[in-house]
Design a protein around this nucleic acid. Structure first.
Length: 846
DNA sequence: TTAGGGTTAG
């Protein structure tokens, strides 16, 4: 469809770069071209009246000044800026002789015309001038005048007008009071507006409607709908305008049931739905998620006006149905009405979603030819976004630089574009350069840092944002939760959760899913489950997050149960769901179930396994000790196994102490220098644990030659909000003597309980006594000992380790949990271990 | 004479 619309959208084919400059034909303000083509009758009428004005002007010149009143009234009737300018000039030249009967009518007409044309300041000038000339305003003057004040946001002047109304005794006039309600609500003075309504001796449908509309527009849609029912109760019958206001309030509340209830009144009171009402209904049903009803109302409406088209288009784009939105645009281009700036806003947005650069450029051309960008910064902002999404940062910058009024949205669009296109340096420069930063700017930066896995930096930015007094929202908190999940700090996770509750941050599926994921990764699957269970709506990401939370906990059975429930609820799994499921099986030794799931991925769900899924399978078989099967699986893979696959097999060889296969796997890794997986370290550890020190020396020499270093083991634990970090054999902690004493006490108790240290975990060629000492000072042991001496009996010990925990530390933690009756959690670089009463949740699968 | 629908960036 996009291409068929191109011809209609472009008067000339687009060229590379920015299309031609605008050419707006202008004939005394009336353009006989496209602008008036949609409303030929209105145009002809205006044109006829303009001719009449010209004739009148000739007569005035001949007959003298008294005909000026007639001239002004005619110009006001035309209502264009040019005719009004002319009328105002004539009005300025008024003298006292011309204050004849009928001048009040002329003044009122002129004020009304200026107000309608958006020339509120002129309307007020006319009012001042009429007072100077001694023409006394009447009850018709004030609604026009207040309306003018409202339109140009001259609230101070409006309040003075209110004073004049009271003094002159027009306050009880129903028309004047209705306009006052509207005026005060538009100013934001809800209380004053309400007072006017309450004090009215007599109210009509317009009074109620003004109040309902006022509350709705002032972000009090609940009150608006409640007033609608009060009005019905009071026996005042709603009209079409009331219905539009009430429907619009339901749309703001996104309350489908309420919307349907209000909608039903249209039938009850037998109002013929007009264009305004249809647009409001379509908008309401779309905002309430009733897409089918909205579409049906749109399809059934024969006389589709501009606003209706714009409403449906913007919602289609928001729902990701960009092609359908462009199909609606195609209909408009064929049948009218002519697209305006809001149509083009949606069209640009659709082009951006679809990556349709050519179509986006055509929209740009149309916008320039019709001068739509001149009065609307949003259009330029949307075009910056569109060009950025299409990867054309140069064109986006050209528009940005050409803008005389760059708003924070323009800067944010540019910033988000650079984040998307991966230019990290520019991102920071732009952020620092921004004259003003709002919530969205900070969200873009925090999101970008999380995307780049710079999670500590993301948390720092969040703190900076708080210091600057910017209040976080659900988007901020979802990014922060994601950062925290990567860091694995349960203390921070709890703080983040508490922060969202304390600050009443609006919760949605995105934030809830991020919180579930965060608690899963930070080792509290119980809280993850509590949040998940309370979620009203869950998509595939939410289900995947809870499945992964169960997987890291080692609760494979529950992960599989959740998967079943997810399928029952009609949610289709994706590739990430299967990573969670296969990991869950792997961590729980559910080999058979894992193999079945892997099989079903392609056969039932049509998802082709990627290298990550093959990695999970190698892990699943390897952990269960099925090393030969794992090797056969690798050999049968349809894709080339990478270092992660071989690294996974290597890890299993370490656990199950198969040195020969480890050497075989290590030799399959094409380039040991691409050390993302710590493969040489694992290999040297395997040799060391078997006492093959000459092999260890060879691997370490290779590592040294290639400039690679073993990452030292380090564990951290959080005590009273402070993170304490320990490396292996670390003696730098201020309380090291107490920690050592505690470790000695623990070791005695464990020895009494029959524990024999597994010295194969000491990867250095030293004597047995030294080995025992080194083993007793592994970083996780130091962290556990410190936590035991610094926290109360009931507080669980939480340790995060950067590498995989060794078998001796694992046994140590199990026994400590029993002897000291304390729950211990260790999150290593692979999974969680929950120790309680001498048992670990991993069941030996690590 | 008064009151009404659609708005870009994370």
């Amino acid at each position: 469809m996009a291409l068929s619309s191109l011809a209609a959208l472009c008067s000339s084919p687009p060229v590379s770069g920015i299309p031609d400059s605008p050419t707006i034909s202008n004939l005394n303000g009336f353009s006989p071209t496209t602008d008036n083509a949609a409303a030929p009758n209105a145009f002809l009428r205006s044109y006829t009246i303009l001719n009449e004005i010209k004739q009148l002007h000739c007569r005035v010149a001949k007959k003298g000044p008294t005909h000026n009143n007639e001239l002004i009234a005619k110009c006001a009737e035309v209502g264009t800026p040019e005719s009004l300018d002319y009328a105002l000039k004539v009005f300025e030249g008024w003298n006292e002789d011309e204050c004849v009967a009928g001048s009040l009518f002329v003044c009122n007409s002129l004020i009304r015309a200026c107000s309608s044309a958006g020339l509120g300041d002129r309307a007020i000038l006319v009012f001042v001038r009429m007072l100077e000339m001694g023409v006394m305003p009447d009850k018709y003057t004030f609604p026009f005048l207040l309306s003018a004040c409202t339109r140009v946001s001259w609230f101070g002047e409006g309040v003075q007008v209110h004073g004049a109304i009271v003094k002159m005794g027009f306050a009880e006039d129903i028309f004047v009071a209705n306009t006052l309600i509207h005026f005060h609500f538009e100013c934001g003075d809800v209380m004053d507006g309400r007072r006017v309504f309450d004090e009215m001796p007599e109210k009509n449908v317009v009074s109620w409607t003004s109040l309902i509309c006022g509350y709705s527009r002032r972000d009090c849609p609940k009150e608006a709908v409640s007033l609608f029912f009060d009005m019905v109760e009071a026996g005042v019958e709603p009209n079409a305008v009331t219905m539009v206001c009430a429907i619009s309030a339901c749309a703001k509340l996104q309350d489908l049931k309420l919307g349907e209830r209000v909608h039903s009144y249209i039938g009850d009171i037998d109002i013929e739905p007009n264009g305004h009402m249809v647009s409001a209904l379509v908008d309401m049903y779309m905002k309430c998620g009733a897409f089918v009803t909205a579409k049906r109302i749109f399809d059934n409406c024969i006389e589709r006006n501009l606003v209706l088209y714009n409403t449906i288009m913007s919602h289609l784009v928001k729902r990701g149905l960009a092609r359908e939105a462009l199909a609606v645009l195609g209909e408009m281009l064929e049948q009218g009405p002519q697209p305006d700036r809001l149509t083009m806003l949606s069209a640009i947005s659709a082009s951006a979603t679809l990556n349709e650069l050519l179509f986006g450029k055509c929209c740009h051309g149309y916008i320039l030819r019709n001068g739509l960008q001149e009065k609307d910064d949003n259009i330029n902002n949307a075009m910056i976004d569109m060009y950025m999404k299409c990867g054309e940062s140069g064109l986006a910058c050209t528009i940005f630089n050409s803008m005389s009024n760059k708003t924070v949205v323009s800067w944010n669009s540019l910033l988000a574009g650079y984040v998307r296109n991966g230019d990290g340096r520019s991102v920071r420069d732009i952020f620092d350069e921004m004259p003003e930063r709002d919530l969205v700017s900070w969200n873009i930066m925090i999101g970008a840092l999380v995307q780049e896995s710079l999670c500590e930096e993301a948390i720092k930015f969040f703190r900076m944002m708080q210091r600057e007094g910017i209040k976080a929202d659900r988007v901020t908190m979802a990014s922060v939760a994601s950062a925290c999940g990567n860091l694995g700090s349960l203390g921070l996770a709890k703080w983040i959760y508490h922060y969202t509750e304390e600050n009443a941050i609006e919760r949605d599926m995105l934030l809830d899913t991020a919180l579930v994921d965060m608690f899963g990764r930070c080792g509290d699957p119980r809280i993850a489950m509590q949040i998940f269970e309370k979620m009203e709506k869950r998509d595939v990401s939410s289900w995947t997050a809870i499945i992964c939370a169960m997987a890291t906990e080692g609760n494979g059975k529950q992960a599989l149960e959740l998967f079943k429930e997810m399928l029952c609820q009609g949610v289709e799994p994706d590739d990430v769901t299967f990573v969670g499921l296969l990991t869950a099986c792997s961590h729980s030794g559910l080999v058979k179930q894992g193999c079945q799931l892997f099989q079903s991925m392609k056969e039932i769900y049509g998802i082709s396994p990627q290298v990550v899924h093959y990695g999970c399978m190698v892990d699943l078989l390897g952990r269960a000790g099925l090393l030969e099967e794992a090797l056969d699986f690798i050999k049968s893979m349809p894709i080339e196994p990478n270092d992660i696959i071989w690294g996974s097999l290597l890890s299993s060889c370490r656990t199950h102490k198969n040195v020969e296969m480890a050497a075989y796997a290590a030799n399959r890794i094409p380039d040991l220098t691409s050390d993302r997986t710590g493969i040489p370290v694992i290999l040297s550890n395997i040799y060391a644990s078997e006492g093959k020190w000459s092999e260890v020396a060879k691997v370490r020499l290779k590592m040294k030659e290639r400039g690679m270093h073993k990452v030292p083991g380090s564990s951290s634990t959080e005590v009273n909000g402070t993170v304490h970090e320990f490396s292996s054999g670390d003696e730098s902690h201020l309380e090291i003597s107490r920690i050592s004493q505690m470790l000695d006490e623990i070791n005695c108790k464990l020895r009494d309980a029959g524990h024999v240290p597994d010295l194969r975990n000491v990867l250095l060629d030293v004597d047995e006594h030294e080995k025992k000492f080194l083993l007793s000072r592994h970083s996780e042991k130091l962290a556990i000992a410190y936590s035991l001496i610094s926290t109360g009996q009931k507080i669980p010990v939480q340790v995060v380790k950067n590498l995989r925990t060794c078998s001796d530390c694992h046994t140590f933690a199990k026994l400590v949990s029993k002897v000291y009756n304390r729950e211990i959690t260790i999150r290593d670089n692979n999974r969680f271990h929950f120790f309680k009463e001498g048992v670990c949740s991993c069941g030996g699968f690590w």
